[in-house]
Design a protein around this nucleic acid. Structure first.
Lengths: 218, 218
DNA sequence: AATAAAGTTTAGACTTGTCTAAAAAATTAT
DNA sequence: ATAATTTTTTAGACAAGTCTAAACTTTATT
């Protein structure tokens, strides 16, 4: 059994491993958990004793198979709760994160499996992130950042890189939601902004936005 | 904001006040939380500083208005989650308690209000206990223990005094569920057992059972 | 009313998780 | 290759919440 603090560390390491393969260093974990490197050092020793991470002093840390499975299960719970909040409780996609951070620590296998069934076994959360199955496997879809599309290419919005409520509300305001079809009309060399077509409307998108929106090319 | 530990103490005091009016003593709290009197003493000082309880050394403790409201809100959350588990996730009434103990500490007003709406604003939990409203008011129904009924009196099962899964499973086995009509046929002076009629079936009920089942007389 | 018993509080210790400050190791720059 | 810088770890402290053991109040008994 893991404490909430331990679960948060596992989740952080899991997310860091998914973007930067190779041992995860102390500072990166500290930054992602808004804590201090010394606290990370302490906690990593505990996680190492519990055999969920491999750790060699000064050499960073990696999840063991048990660690990966444990972390994936927390992510699974987080994302299922997010779906629940949006689908059943009328939360908007920019409101779910903080509540799901709490709900992900609830311990009950039956609860999460029944929740999964109630929601119709969803495969992705409201931000387009895949939901790990009971064994921790994730079914990644082929996506790329909007910024990488070339002129005339088209695709469908399938996810976001930044889940902050500021960004999500911005997308709402622009009418950009998951499932919408986008065509790149023009790329501006000057500031890397894009001119896109969405809902038959032409709009201009900054590079920052294009670098935080995932597209499945079509 | 209150910690989980603080919330558990408030809830315990709230429940104790509802049965034994007057200042609640340290040992009673310790017993109900399966902790030691010294821990209770420490915590009560903190709760007193936070102005949710009135406390005079050696004189027991009472909830302030703020304390009552806070505690009622936790009970509200607990009972709404129990309804959710039974109605939406197919839990049985003997499985919900431990999970609801965890869920009751989730902090989100929107979550609990939307949950209330999803469930159709239920007034009672799966054990027949009333659900406090947003202001902490509870709508108590007129109920009495089965053991207090006289011969030939009839009533409807509306609640249980003991929510342990052992007792609830026993009731399931006997076919006694909330809403069922019961008629007292005979009371045995020897062991205070009852002969009752339920679903047109005659059965014998021990005094222990009769003292843990609530009836609304009809 | 004095004493015994029961209940309550305090003192000091322990665990978890955090922090700051300082020491040690690794990396980068010259 | 040595010095400077960055990163990581350790040492020591703190807060929350708990415990045991001892001291102190209150209540019950005689």
């Amino acid at each position: 059994m893991f404490s909430q603090a331990e679960e948060n560390y596992l989740k952080a390491i899991y997310h860091l491993e998914s973007v930067s393969k190779g041992g995860i260093n102390t500072n990166a974990i500290a930054k992602s958990l808004a804590t201090k490197a010394s606290s990370v050092s302490d906690m990593i020793k505990k996680l190492s004793d519990k055999e969920v991470v491999l750790y060699k002093k000064y050499k960073g840390v990696t999840l063991t198979e048990l660690g990966k499975k444990t972390a994936a299960n927390i992510v699974r719970k987080h994302r299922l709760w997010e779906v629940f909040l949006v689908k059943k409780l009328n939360f908007s996609w920019d409101e779910v994160h903080d509540v799901a951070e709490q709900l992900e620590h609830i311990k009950s296998k039956k609860l999460i499996n029944q929740l999964d069934a109630l929601l119709g076994f969803p495969t992705h959360d409201p931000h387009g992130d895949p939901i790990p199955d009971k064994d921790g496997c994730i079914n990644a879809i082929d996506k790329c950042l909007l910024a990488t599309l070339k002129e005339t290419e088209t695709g469908v919005c399938v996810g976001v890189n930044d889940s902050s409520s500021e960004f999500l509300q911005f997308l709402d305001k622009k009418g950009i939601t998951l499932g919408k079809k986008i065509e790149v009309l023009e790329k501006e060399d000057f500031d890397d902004s894009l001119s896109i077509l969405i809902d038959n409307k032409k709009m201009s998108i900054s590079n920052k936005i294009a670098n935080n929106l995932y597209i499945r090319k079509s």
